[in-house]
Nucleic acid binder design. Sequence first.
DNA 1: TCTTGATCATAGCTAAACTCTATCAATAAT
DNA 2: ATTATTGATAGAGTTTAGCTATGATCAAGA
Lengths: 298, 298
Amino acid sequence: MIKIRDLEYLDAIDTHRHFGRAAEACFVSQPTLSGQIMKLEEHLGLTLVERQTRKVMLTPAGEELVAEARKVLRAANNFEASAKALLDPFSGDLHIGLIPTLAPYLLPHIMKDLNDKLPNIKFYLHEDKTKNLLKSLDDGKLDLIILPWLEEMDKFDRYDLFEEPLVLATSKDHQLSLKEVVSLGELKDYEVLTLEDGHCLRDQALGFCFTAGAKEDHRFQATSLETLRYMVSSNMGITLLPQLATVNHHITNTINYIPFEDPKPNRQISLMLRSGYSRMQCIRAVVSSVKNSMKEVI
Amino acid sequence: MIKIRDLEYLDAIDTHRHFGRAAEACFVSQPTLSGQIMKLEEHLGLTLVERQTRKVMLTPAGEELVAEARKVLRAANNFEASAKALLDPFSGDLHIGLIPTLAPYLLPHIMKDLNDKLPNIKFYLHEDKTKNLLKSLDDGKLDLIILPWLEEMDKFDRYDLFEEPLVLATSKDHQLSLKEVVSLGELKDYEVLTLEDGHCLRDQALGFCFTAGAKEDHRFQATSLETLRYMVSSNMGITLLPQLATVNHHITNTINYIPFEDPKPNRQISLMLRSGYSRMQCIRAVVSSVKNSMKEVI
DNA sequence: TCTTGATCATAGCTAAACTCTATCAATAAT
DNA sequence: ATTATTGATAGAGTTTAGCTATGATCAAGA
């Protein structure tokens, strides 16, 4: 039977493409790792690693098997994590994924209480786009993700945290900037600045805009919310921003944030995890802490 | 780091609830298994096994961990199976799940060609109800399942094999028995014999009957298709049978099988597997063999 | 109550496997 | 041609899984 250690060696070889560094990463000597990899290859009857003098890489068979190997390693990590969680349900590591249009504005509100309520949990934060987060959650790199919920995520378990309204952002000089509130319908015939492709906020904002009869401003696409905000403050156009991104920011005096009338455009921020995830006690504590932190904010 | 062997021991302890027999199943001596389990418990800092003098069982922590352990073992098996498949894609074991209303009537048509085309594959056949098959497929006990496709299975990959019409089965003495073909509408106001709960054929047949205005005969529920057939032959009622179950059977002279006019009631027989399953070459060969075998039959 | 049998734990030993250090061989870079 | 890099090889040491033999415990039955 295969040994888990060998799979770690294979993983490391693929990661580092270098026997010496792979060995170092596994805290063993290079001959040890070389030997075990060779033994593994012999056991399987396959060549997994292509050794050129200055270049190491996996064969196609190796590529395929390292993917399987990582599944085993992940399952083994889950085993040990579950064991730890049984010793103390409120300890261990928690890898949290968040999208870029949420993370920097949400985290300041929730991390303090999380650290207070779960002092023995070590939180690792990963920022990425929705698609990648879902993939990472699915194959076990992440324990949970926090993002705007969409229909297609129904294969995962869902815990709603809060609803975040979108607000209209205009420069102080814009003709809409004097209004106290605005309705979606008033955006008709305006052009709206957007984020670049791949941000789910882009798709959601565009959805609301199209319904309202507004169009996308095709001249620019912003790479981040902060760029987008800067473009608005420079009077290059208007846009929809999530409300959390409008709290306590640093260019208040050149931008107006105008709330929408009902029905407000908003996004449902939810915590998603794999169904069958084992550390539910911990998750419940996270959900309750985040909800608690956010009810004062939004 | 955990060793796979230890997880096998834990699995065996849970399966056999007896150190001696578990050890035997793992082909090691009882002290070896005892020792390794103790070492595992010490490593994790948890008691996994409750040892009473005449009874061995897992603690709640053990129960939880053995579930995780089995995931690791399954991943490890997949690793080795993938490696084997790389050596020869058309060799190894293939665990196939089928439902009871299909297996005995389908297998005689497809197994010969499968064995001819894939002589180095060892086929294991598992007969169970749809719900259990899906569970087993999901957690890796089965490589593929063959069953009537239903909407809710869309999380798995699907390969359609053939459509199987349902036919009306009546005794020779029944008033419908003289017809060459029959329409669903003609079943209106008849009562139809059914299989017991849990068979998907029951739900499908009832669906067609209700649409047609027919009712369920509540006096009996058959435990198998053969019982059902026997009840029909004894003139206790009529029923819908899948067409494959009417080919070459042994009570022909007391039952009439009457095909339906279009639109025929039928079931879509499909092969389902986990998305991302690694042995696709082999699967494609299976699909092609089965389709080939069945195009002459149905 | 005593005996018996079943069952898991312990002790001590063996053999295999993993790992280490030291060194070699091959080759790319200068 | 020389040097540096890098993976493979050799040989020794240490760890550990595994075995057999035996002990300890306790339920069942006489």
